[in-house]
Amino acid sequence: MFETLSDRLTSVFSSLRGKGRLSEEDISATAREIRLALLEADVALPVVREFIAQIKERARGEEVSKALNPAQQVIKIVNEELVQILGGETREVRFAKNPPTVIMLAGLQGAGKTTLAGKLANWLAGQRNTPLLVAADLQRPNAVTQLQVVGQRAEVPVFAPQPGNGVGDPIEVARESIEHARRNNHNVVVIDTAGRLGVDTEMMQQAADIRDAVEPDEILFVVDAMIGQDAVNTAQAFLDGVGYDAVALTKLDGDARGGAALSIRHITGRPIMFASTGEKLEDFDLFHPDRMASRILDMGDVLTLIEQA
């Protein structure tokens, strides 16, 4: 059994070593293997299609026909293209000229928003900021309590004037939080919002209203790395419904390939800024496109070998 894409491509090409130009059949066979690998990694179908077209074109070119080992050359191209899509320009958090900087989180139910709010606040505090967490999920049972516990763990104050569990207006809370932050010298505000579905127009409108009330400097779309083909629908629905500037990918500590990263980046053009890698406060990192590329294709160390070849 060939486990990884590199193994499979190497087998496709095994008869070819040193023969020069790839035939159209070789290229089709290659494209099929790459398509399979990407789909198994949950990359969205429309994105796979475009990606494959791109790879085919480069595979027909000189760089492959001249390579000593066409298989490795193709893998290298695939990796380059992946990193390019995933990466783009690296983005730092945009801080407001007039504090507080407002960061709003949005995403599906259970994606990891509240956990990420704590991590983000912890990370910001570690960089000499004075963040304030804002409990604007008044929907989910005990979302407010959860954020308070998270805030305690991160030693970051939590603005929670409403009890939640269906009581209170999240738009009002978000609005008041800015004034509260100004009065208490918090230079960053991190707003946790309720989970919502892309098709829930009422809840999506609520997110847009929160946005309009606080005019965030950054809206982060929080998405679970285990998400499948629905990533495109959801990413687009949140883009249309509330809009976002960047993406935070969660639960990367599991074994999901995380093809959604590629899909969302490709479809929305929004960069992936943060990676969440566990349930604890410190399980948090800036996003590394190169690591993600080899993760999606399950390439492991092969790339290092190719680079050295």
Binding site: E40, D224, I227, T234, G254
Partner: peptide, 11 residues
């Protein structure tokens, strides 16, 4: 199992 989960659901 969350319906939004992709191929990881099997694992």
């Amino acid at each position: 199992l969350d319906a939004t989960t992709g191929q990881n659901g099997l694992r």
